[in-house]
Design a protein around this nucleic acid. Structure first.
Lengths: 238, 238
DNA sequence: AAGTGGTCTAGACCACCTC
DNA sequence: AGGTGGTCTAGACCACTTG
């Protein structure tokens, strides 16, 4: 690595990461300054910086001004989940997609999910329940609340034609999103809709999205038995 | 934004993202060339590039040479999960941590989990079962297989003193990791260990790690009833 | 006070891919 | 073939934070 070749930032990344993988540097160890690595690998400091930032974003190293760079002393498994539009997820698995609007109702006041702690005002909402089917079998059941203050025009959308999920993704970008993943016993209604025994425990994803401080939607998505969330591997690079 | 002020890449990010959030540009729309944005915002093209790469990494825009930049036509919810060492997760919630080694046994051949499709050789493994407790209550039960070919020295570690989870994280960096999240009915043994009714469905995380093509470990982590995975919000920036 | 990483610039060249 | 994003450089200055 110390010949006359110019190294790219990806070369630098591989080099430093290689030294961490082969235990030259272990969790907690301090790495050389960017400038020294740059001289050693015959490239500009900004090229080293590009590589190190990439490693820092993956949680592999920690960087602090003046203190320098060290290998993360307590590495975490950082997994990325991409949660697509349900229609696309179903179709990309080779199934035929269909969705069924079960309920769409306007309410004068929102439940606690949609209300920020400080707010005490009653927010009008639309309560939407939708079943997504894969090859005519229940795949995901969505129980959704949409703020009519933030998204008044959803009242004019034909949700039997396009699902609220898909319409919102294409028409209402969000600035913030919370996701929680857990197991829950289905309610009797959910069990009937999902065609499982009452009380069966299923995987649930709850999401809330905001645009700035204004809530857009909260959704509880109950997934069919056997559903698996699979992470994309951040490290899988060529 | 078109005064004489110099804009930072974070200003540029906010500006472009703001235009996407306020629907100036909608999913599928083409954005101006970096160079034009740079002139408009009075900064260098590399500054715009830095901002746009950040947006691309978050899945908000898509960039292709010659074709230009467009707003992602099918946005996904991209959630990041940080899965820490179990001890640290428990302690950061304010509980007292303890772990209990239930079994550690050397086997001559690994089960299918640890073996890459092409390999037919029998790999010697260590089978380790550990219960992690929070305030003396079952929190996570780990059923783990460690390759003795890749990690021979684990035989010399006192796993009653330090959990396999923690020892591996600190001593065996990995280059690749698969994570799957799903609901599973506990086996009778698991139910007894976790102190739940036999057949209760719990949240399971399965992880496999490799260093290059060599498997390190496969673990099935069964989580206590009520456990919730919570994503970190990629967009929560100041 | 000083050392380290973070950012910005202007310019150059490259790589990819659509037009 | 040409237009776009991707990378690299050398240098400058800034911001943070620790010794």
């Amino acid at each position: 690595m110390s010949t006359g070749v110019r190294n790219s930032w990806q070369d630098v990344r591989k080099y430093v990461r290689g030294q961490i993988l082969n235990l030259t540097y272990r969790p907690g160890d301090k790495l050389p300054r960017d400038e020294d690595i740059a001289r050693e690998l015959n490239c500009a400091r900004s090229t080293v910086h590009r590589a190190m930032r990439s490693l820092a974003e993956d949680g592999i190293i920690e960087r602090r001004r003046k203190a320098g760079t060290k290998v993360n002393p307590d590495p975490v498994t950082r997994a990325t989940l991409d949660i697509p539009i349900t229609r696309i997820e179903i179709e990309s698995r080779g199934y035929t997609y269909r969705h069924q609007l079960i309920e769409s109702r306007v309410l004068k006041a929102a439940p606690a999910h949609l209300v920020r702690p400080s707010t005490t005002d009653a927010i009008p909402v639309c309560h939407i329940r939708t079943l997504h089917l894969a090859d005519e079998r229940p795949f995901v059941f969505e129980d959704r609340w949409v703020s009519l203050q933030t998204v008044p025009e959803i009242r004019d959308v034909d949700l039997a034609e396009i699902s609220a999920n898909e319409w919102l993704v294409h028409n209402r970008p969000y600035s913030n999103c919370d996701v929680e993943i857990f197991v829950d016993r289905t309610t009797d209604t959910e069990a009937r809709i999902m065609e499982v025994l009452s009380g069966t425990s299923l995987l649930v994803l709850e999401r809330t999205t905001w645009i700035d401080a204004a809530p857009i939607t909260h959704v509880r998505a109950v997934h069919a038995k056997g559903y698996r969330l699979i992470s994309t591997d951040r490290q899988a690079r060529p």
